[in-house]
Design a protein around this nucleic acid. Structure first.
Length: 287
DNA sequence: AAGAGGCCCTGATAGC
DNA sequence: TGCTATCAGGGCCTCT
């Protein structure tokens, strides 16, 4: 679920709450996430002071003052909850998938600070934690990733050259983190709608104008989603308990058989499974 | 070496 | 009410 915009909303909220806080205790209730939590995880975190919460692509980067730290990937269903220790019922919440009430099941990791604790919940366990010991090691973790849409290196030259002779369809390229990082299944459909490009169009057949639109709308759609506070199919609240609003702006995602929202277009939104992921598009205006 | 497909896992929902 | 099937926002691994 969480794509770049949702992770960015979590980052902003989390940074405010845990910045300059010292980790007093770490509880790993279930280390069997997507990847097994490192045996030295607790030791690595213990007594560390948090300098900053950063983000790259869909990954949160928790930086400590000594330049070590760890990264969190939320997978499909990972959520972060901050709970006031003195009053267990008052939860300041960062939740994508669940209601603001702290779930009882699947709370796999707890990180305690002096007055609150951080709880990682993940029913499907597709998310994971990974530690790093220095900035070079961190950089290496992301070395095989393509640029974010906002990056200077995500430019017309890069895009046009990347697509040359590529048989793969454009939808799969938007999901391919080696090409561009941070886009997931919802925003891939939304970006292609704005571009008026059919998700099944082969990359090698994209025109220069197509590339220009991909360049433009990859940025715009994600930026707008961040501005709207992210989106989710289920309840999504940021740390202040405000609901994300971007789902109201979906043009095609989960709008199967509804009328195309482009003005003067009489098309109908279709759903098609492409590479095992559902794609939504207007069968009339997306060519 | 690019590209397709299987798979990791739980839970919500639909259909019978 | 209770079973089974299908689907879900990610991405790594294997096979061709």
């Amino acid at each position: 679920m969480p794509e770049l915009p949702e992770v960015e909303i979590v980052r902003q909220s989390l940074d405010k709450k845990v910045k300059d806080k010292i980790i007093l205790k770490v509880l790993v209730k279930n280390r069997n996430l997507r990847f097994k939590i490192h045996s030295g995880f607790k030791r690595h975190l213990n007594k560390k002071k948090i300098k900053k919460v950063d983000r790259f692509s869909k990954y949160l980067i928790i930086r400590f003052e000594d330049n070590t730290g760890f990264i969190i990937h939320l997978g499909m269903t990972g959520t972060i909850h901050l709970s006031n220790i003195k009053n267990k019922n008052s939860l300041t919440n960062t939740s994508f998938y669940h209601s603001p009430i702290l779930p009882k099941k699947h709370n796999h990791v707890e990180i305690q600070f002096s007055k609150m604790k951080f709880i990682y919940n993940d029913p499907r366990r597709f998310g994971y934690f990974s530690i790093f010991h220095n900035p070079i090691e961190l950089k290496k973790k992301f070395s095989h990733f393509g640029p974010e849409p906002f990056s200077k290196s995500f430019n017309m030259n890069y895009i046009c050259n990347y697509f040359k002779k590529k048989e793969k369809n454009i939808k799969n390229f938007l999901l391919d983190q080696k090409f561009v990082s941070g886009i997931g299944n919802i925003y891939a459909s939304e970006i292609l709608f704005k571009c008026k490009i059919h998700p099944n169009k082969k990359a090698k057949n994209l025109t220069k104008y197509d590339c220009k639109k991909i360049f433009k709308y990859s940025k715009l759609v994600l930026k707008k989603a961040i501005k709207k506070g992210g989106s989710s199919i289920r309840d999504f609240q940021n740390i202040n308990g405000e609901t994300g609003n971007f789902q109201k702006n979906f043009n095609v995602y989960q709008r199967e058989n509804l009328k195309c929202l482009k003005s003067k277009c009489n098309g109908i939104v279709k759903k098609k499974i492409i590479s095992n992921r559902s794609s939504f598009f207007c069968n009339y205006c997306q060519k």
